[in-house]
Write a protein that binds this DNA or RNA. Sequence first.
DNA 1: ATTTAGATATGATAATTATCATATTCAAAA
DNA 2: TTTTGAATATGATAATTATCATATCTAAAT
Lengths: 231, 231
Amino acid sequence: MKYINTVSGCKNCPYRALIFGSLDNKELDFLEKTRKEIFYKKGDVLTKEGTSINEFLYLKTGLLKVYKTRAGNKTHIIRIAGPSDFVSLLSMFSNDKYKYSIAAIEDTTVCVVDSESIKFLAKSNGEFALELMKRMSYTYDEIIDSTYRIRQKHLRGRIAYILLYFAQKVYRQNRFELPISRREIGELINMTTENVIRILSEFRKDQIIFIDGKIIEIKDIERLERIKKIG
Amino acid sequence: MKYINTVSGCKNCPYRALIFGSLDNKELDFLEKTRKEIFYKKGDVLTKEGTSINEFLYLKTGLLKVYKTRAGNKTHIIRIAGPSDFVSLLSMFSNDKYKYSIAAIEDTTVCVVDSESIKFLAKSNGEFALELMKRMSYTYDEIIDSTYRIRQKHLRGRIAYILLYFAQKVYRQNRFELPISRREIGELINMTTENVIRILSEFRKDQIIFIDGKIIEIKDIERLERIKKIG
DNA sequence: ATTTAGATATGATAATTATCATATTCAAAA
DNA sequence: TTTTGAATATGATAATTATCATATCTAAAT
């Protein structure tokens, strides 16, 4: 991680409206007092499950994974978070310890403000509190939805789901570089590493995708959509 | 459903401290203006996914299931909610439509207040807003946690999990009546009805449980705990 | 009282997925 | 450069789970 010289503050931040829309300039000044902008390299761990929550994280650029580690070192990736996701909203208001770990899966820039400042503003500004709740609830609902959606699919359907997720939601391109390993894909959509590799190979043989290491190109998106739906 | 004559108000409610601890008497009076107490019989549907959220529900006695219906009439039960659970917190602040359906799986009494009143108080009373967030976040975290915990277990482990859940968390007795059918158990822990029945029969043959229709008695709790852990 | 639909029950079989074994490639560290 | 460990890859097999078939039981509706 590396501190970045802050170029511009919250007031002109393109993401301001997403969550800080109800804060006035005075309140933003208050937030900025504890604000830091931090750069994390791919692979860096931002927070670890069980450690104290002191900061409110706010993703500007890059990609993070939110995950949980269970007995036997088994890891579940709960979600992938991108710009405009409010990744530390989870568990921040219910717990003083992180319930999830967060790591960068791409080079990432985050804004960090003191979590007590956020709580103070939530207390004093009801509009802001409602905005936080809205965001939080939306984020959680998405997690639950995708979990149940994935669990009813077969292996091929899950791989189709995750490839389309990266292509459509994250990179908005049919050709992209996977930010995570085959093992991590398995941790995200609940299957073994071998089967992730196997199904990807199947898709390659069926000319649905092109693979070169972590580079994936979707060649037959209709077919992939169909596989996602049925299986 | 049936309206109940309100005997005592929020001020003396045993659950007041759980979520309304930060509201003063004046604010409680405000809430009580729209407050109704409603009785639902087992099987009654309280809310349906997709309909407008107008009320804030607050479970006093009984048991509810929170569920989602997918394409092909496939149902997922997201959670079982009991007294002191704040069942309509989910999606209330992110959406004006329910994201989940709710039905009574036992005779149930709920308090209902206008959702706009709750939002008004959240806006004007920051402490209350934080309490709501805390509850909401806690509830969501529990759902996510149990989902991931269940999905890594085998069938026997899942049945052990759900039996111990009812015995320990819901009824606090080794002998209890299942509030849901075998099919619904499957919808909750992700397995087919046949396999739910089969594993229950296995447990009966192994003298781990006694079964008489919906009545279950856990005879060998240590063994069940072990099955829950390993499988 | 009879019908009927749904719930419970069990066996046989098919489908799905994990595990184990082994090989190769790749990238980081010595 | 060599070594080493992790990631990718593929096949064979075992384990797990779903599906299909069929039967009985139960409770609600006629």
